[in-house]
Write a protein that binds this DNA or RNA. Structure first.
Length: 210
DNA sequence: TATTGGATCGCC
DNA sequence: GCGATCCAATAG
């Protein structure tokens, strides 16, 4: 049994949401079919107070979605080439978002290969923020999409006695964030320990539950 | 209006 | 290790 994550789930502290998104499944229903993957790596961006966040320094045209209600998609173009998918967190009016950095492919693997034009090994299909948006067919035109809708959303497994456990059936590794210079050393990157589907391995800063 | 540089990726 | 590629942000 599965259940779609509600706005209530997203309307919490960014760091809590970033950790709890690990192990959940991101789903995109496209005209060609359903594409999904397990979230194995995230990063927290704490909004206006975080020098590494796009929201640092206040609201602009690009980052305005981050200041609105939680459970929306904040999607932007980086380096002129790639789209990154974020999940908006915190209560309405407070900025914050979680960057989805890597997926373990589940459904629609053929479609992922087609979109990525990659016939290589499975762990290379979506092991990076730009790769996973391309694999799932997510573009900037979907900026602001509501993740409580029925086209792009995140589900969790329910009915398990371990549901309430903060750590599911895995341990969480915490490191500094990737690809930024300001606020790089803040321990806001999280991934599933031992997963072969994470974007890259860096020196381990801390482990939880493991 | 001009300039600058970035939450990346893939190939050299 | 480096170029692609383009738009948002900031300064003038």
């Amino acid at each position: 049994m599965t259940s779609r994550l509600s706005r209530k789930f997203y309307s919490r502290k960014t760091i809590v949401v970033a950790k709890e998104l690990l192990g959940k499944t991101l789903v995109h229903k496209t005209d060609e079919g359903i594409i999904s993957g397990k979230i194995v790596e995230t990063e927290a961006y704490l909004g206006q107070k975080d020098p590494g966040s796009h929201a640092y320094g206040g609201i602009t045209r690009r980052n305005r979605i981050m200041f609105g209600p939680a459970g929306k998609a904040y999607i932007y173009l980086v380096y002129g080439n790639h789209y990154c998918l974020n999940v908006v967190t915190e209560k309405d009016g407070v900025s914050g978002a979680v960057l989805i950095r890597a997926l373990e492919p589940q459904q629609g693997i053929g479609l992922m290969r087609k979109r990525r034009r990659l016939d290589g090994p499975l762990p290379r299909l979506a092991n990076g923020p730009g790769k996973l948006t391309k694999a799932l067919g997510i573009t900037g035109s979907m900026n602001g999409a509501d993740l409580t809708g029925n086209r792009l959303f995140i589900i969790s497994q329910i009915g398990s006695p371990r549901k309430k456990s903060r750590c599911n059936d895995f341990s969480i590794v915490t490191t500094g964030r990737i690809g930024i210079t300001t606020g790089q050393n803040l321990p806001y990157r999280y991934y599933i320990k031992g997963s072969r589907f994470v974007s890259k391995t860096v020196p381990i800063r801390r482990q939880e539950c493991g």
